[in-house]
């Protein structure tokens, strides 16, 4: 098997606050293979975006990586000095943000923003960078790219702007793209197009994708594997088909039950009772225990770690033999 492009081991992110230390991520481990699409799902605040920010080294102050390692193509990147990390961002890891309306600087032309980014990472002349930018915009599906490249962001619609954002994230041909809720802010009608454009482009360059979303439908159609996150931890990770058909963790089972299906005769969508605990009030034992339908004694006192129960599948749940304590 090939070496993973991204390897995250036991990643723990903490925020010191006045009321003590909040643990935003705890013991998160996963790999992404070259060209693979890893979906990351979970409710708001589960730590999906935090994982993305940690990988690219942009955790907001005063948060910090307290434990664990992040390796990109074998090179450790979580402790790189800022100047070196700058060479990783954009060049080796591209990032797409949620809201295309606010991701672009309103005062600069699209051309200026793309050319600036290309020339930061690649030794190209202004003209060559511009030609490359036009080609990219054309590839992400902006009609009449050669003319529209000199427009300002406010002259584009939301969907078009997200295409520009994708072009910006991919302009230096990174090996890994972190897409943080890339379609959440968009019209349902353009969501599929944006995902397609992103997938196509990444497939062309062989870039892997870490697709962060709370939309299981998007994951089902796009991802090769999926990581389900809950309260800053990975609850379950495995091939997307297997997880959807046969979710092991009660939380992922609940999430899968909440996917609307045309074929099902269900009157109502299933919902998981209760809400995710706040970071300051995560219960002892398994963080999901207050909402879990299968809760038993051990869940209340011992915290399970995501452990391999089948080849390629890891689950953090005491229902399965062989699960280790965190």
């Amino acid at each position: 098997m090939a070496d993973p492009i991204l390897s995250v081991r036991d990643l723990t992110v903490e925020f010191p606050t006045r009321h003590g230390i909040l643990t935003a991520l705890s013991g998160v481990s996963f790999d992404i293979m070259p060209g693979e699409v890893l979906g990351v799902v979970g409710e708001s605040g589960a730590g999906k975006s935090m994982t993305g920010s940690a990988v690219i080294g942009l955790i907001d102050r005063p948060g910090r990586i307290a434990k664990g390692e992040i390796h990109l193509q074998g090179e450790r990147i979580d402790n790189l000095p800022e100047e070196r990390m700058r060479g990783v961002r954009g060049k080796r890891i591209g990032m797409i943000f949620q809201d295309p309306l606010t991701s672009l600087n309103p005062l600069y032309r699209i051309s200026e923003q793309i050319v600036e980014t290309i020339r930061t990472h690649l030794p190209l002349s202004k003209e060559a960078a511009r030609a490359k930018a036009v080609g990219l915009l054309d590839r992400v599906g902006i009609p009449d790219a050669a003319r529209r490249i000199d427009d300002y962001p406010h002259q584009f619609s939301g969907g078009m702007r997200q295409r520009v954002v994708i072009a910006l994230a991919l302009c230096a041909e990174p090996d890994l793209v972190i897409a943080d809720e890339p379609t959440t802010a968009l019209d349902v009608s353009v969501q599929a197009q944006i995902i397609d454009v992103m997938k196509e482009l990444c497939a062309e360059t062989g870039a892997a994708i870490m697709l962060i979303t709370h939309d299981m439908g998007v994951i089902a159609e796009t991802a090769d594997r999926v990581a389900v996150m809950y309260a800053g931890r990975i609850a379950e990770i495995g091939p997307v088909r297997a997880v959807i058909k046969d979710a092991k963790h009660p939380y992922s089972a609940g999430l899968m039950g909440a996917i609307p299906r045309m074929s099902a005769d269900l009157e109502r969508l299933v919902q998981i009772p209760g809400a995710m605990p706040r970071l300051s009030a995560i219960p002892p034992g398994c963080p999901f225990n207050p909402r879990c339908p299968h809760v038993f004694d051990r869940c209340l006192t011992h915290r399970p770690a995501a452990s391999e129960i089948e080849p390629g599948r890891r689950v953090a749940c005491w229902l399965y033999p062989g699960v280790q304590e965190a």
Binding site: E82, R86, G90, G94, F97, N105, T120, H121, L168, A172
Partner: peptide
């Protein structure tokens, strides 16, 4: 967000602070 995005694209501190 656009400053965050500029950081995520690896632009230099100088370009971000004084340009953007």
């Amino acid at each position: 967000e656009y400053i965050r995005f500029a950081r995520a694209r690896g632009l230099s501190q100088r370009a971000i602070n004084f340009g953007h």
